[in-house]
């Protein structure tokens, strides 16, 4: 295993310290906790947005802390949910009196830890609401399982709920718009290579030199299909057919698109993917309002990418277009 690190046990803390050192005007770290908050937190009268999860998905989540997006990002160990005491500190630090919304990705551990933190905060008299993001169409949606996972679509929830909170929305309004994004966002990813959790020192799974896995989760969870590698256009066609038929997206719809590299996918390949996405959307008479290409929700050094589509209405368009200024997401 080759990694540009000092000590596997210190990766999260050193990363967060580095982020604060690089963006002191934007963020600060809560002393003694792996929590990044807006430099000016708590913002009085504004609903606070707290998200987080295991580390290894950078720039999620701390990279999206800033004006117009999150108020706090809580960083667990690599691929491990943060604990309730950490999340609780984040909630306390960003509560400006208008309540706090927890944005949770749908993983068993994340949901339980955030729920416990929410209960702790409520006992202290802080108003808390939560939403659970489950945009990954690769996992079957059944009430009898854990259900769909939350992946890159979560960033659209950060952006849009963040804009609503920044505009003075109440906790109920911010939660409602977050739920609307969740109802209208769908993603699916694929992997060409696994990744190595620093503390484990070996790959989370193995893929043959000529193999890929479709529907792979951002922690290397099993996907829907392992096959010989295909051409980019064929891969995109497969992912898009699953995504488009899911809501479903209809001719005349307007969408935002995100191509999300998982950590080791060249920008060149992301544009090659988008080239095909754009053609498919044109064929389906679906209009693209905005496109985001890059790394938003990575999986350490995994090679691969996910595609996310968000179906927009006038309210979502306005909030998506609103400015945001964070270490990893800037839009003016």
């Amino acid at each position: 295993m080759k990694k540009l690190i000092n000590n596997p046990e210190h990766v999260v803390e050193e990363m967060l310290e580095g982020m604060v050192a690089a963006f002191p005007g934007y963020v600060r770290k809560l002393e003694g906790f792996n929590v990044i908050v807006r430099a000016d937190a708590p913002v009085k009268g504004k609903v606070g947005l707290v998200s987080g999860g295991g580390s290894g998905h950078e720039p999620s989540h701390a990279g999206f802390v800033g004006r117009g997006m999150l108020d706090a990002g809580v960083a667990g160990a690599v691929f491990t949910s943060p604990t309730p005491d950490q999340i609780f500190e984040a909630v306390k630090a960003v509560d400006g009196g208008a309540g706090v919304l927890l944005i949770i990705k749908n993983y068993t551990g994340d949901v339980m830890n955030f729920e416990m933190a929410g209960e702790m905060a409520e006992m202290e008299g802080i108003k808390v609401a939560k939403v659970v993001v489950n945009d990954d169409v690769a996992v079957e949606n059944s009430t009898y399982t854990t259900g769909r996972r939350g992946i890159a679509g979560t960033v659209f929830v950060h952006k849009i709920a963040g804009a609503k909170a920044q505009a003075g929305g109440t906790l109920d309004e911010v939660k409602a718009v977050a739920e609307k994004v969740i109802a209208n966002v769908r993603s699916m990813g694929m992997a060409l290579t696994p990744c190595v959790v620093p503390a484990a020192g070996k790959p989370t799974f193995t893929l043959g030199e000529d193999e890929m896995e479709i529907g792979m989760g951002i922690h290397g969870e099993p996907g829907t299909m392992r096959t010989k590698i295909m051409k980019a256009d064929e891969i995109v066609e497969h992912l898009m057919s699953k995504i488009l038929t899911d809501i479903p997206f209809k001719p005349g719809d307007e969408v935002a698109v995100m191509i999300n590299g998982l950590g080791a996918t060249p920008i060149m390949e992301q544009f090659i993917m988008y080239n095909k996405v754009s053609k498919i959307l044109k064929e389906h008479d679906i209009k693209v309002h905005r496109t985001y290409i890059g790394e938003f929700m990575t999986s350490l050094e995994m090679a691969g990418a996910s595609i996310t589509l968000l179906k927009l209405d006038e309210e979502l368009k306005k909030l998506l277009d609103a400015p945001a200024d964070t270490p990893a997401f800037r839009q003016f």
Binding site: T80, T83, P84, D85, G109, M112, M116
Partner: peptide, 15 residues
């Protein structure tokens, strides 16, 4: 347990 185990086991056994 809640603050040290992490994952799902921490909240479950902790609770």
């Amino acid at each position: 347990l809640v603050s040290t185990v992490g994952g799902a086991s921490g909240p479950l056994y902790g609770t």
